[in-house]
């Protein structure tokens, strides 16, 4: 099937590639992962480790999503962005509701939880 543009390298999705974005994403996510490493290896940071880890991961994922996939609402990328935004809640629902229901179930039915009743 043909398309309007003669040279595929002129396609907006090729043009959108941005070298600086790659470098920034690389630096930021590496820094955040180093921070994550610090949270679990440095005794001083340990009390906040779980929050810190989650925050570092969330920011790193966000930075990568935006800079590597170049998600925005431009004409080229709008459907990519919309479909991504639709999937995020499903990802969270799938993991979150599962964790909630099994925490509740384990407390009632697993040997560990049996002491309660």
């Amino acid at each position: 099937m043909g398309h309007g543009i003669e040279n595929p390298l002129e396609h907006p999705e090729v043009r959108v590639v941005n070298g600086r974005g790659y470098l920034v994403s690389y630096a930021v996510s590496l820094l955040l992962m180093t921070l994550a490493l610090g949270f679990v290896t440095q005794p001083a940071l340990m009390p906040w480790a779980l929050v810190g880890l989650s925050a570092a991961a969330a920011v790193a994922v966000l930075v990568q999503i935006i800079l590597l996939f170049q998600l925005d609402f431009s004409e080229t990328q709008v459907w990519t962005t919309v479909s991504f935004l639709l999937i995020v809640p499903l990802f969270i629902i799938a993991v979150g509701l599962t964790m909630w229901m099994f925490n509740a179930l384990d407390a009632r039915t697993m040997l560990a939880g049996m002491m309660m009743h």
Partner: peptide, 23 residues
Amino acid sequence: VFWHFQAVIWVLVFSFVYMRGVL
């Protein structure tokens, strides 16, 4: 897309499996 996606997943694996695991 495929390759960058693996990096995103690795961030989650690294944080919630490896780092969370040693806590």
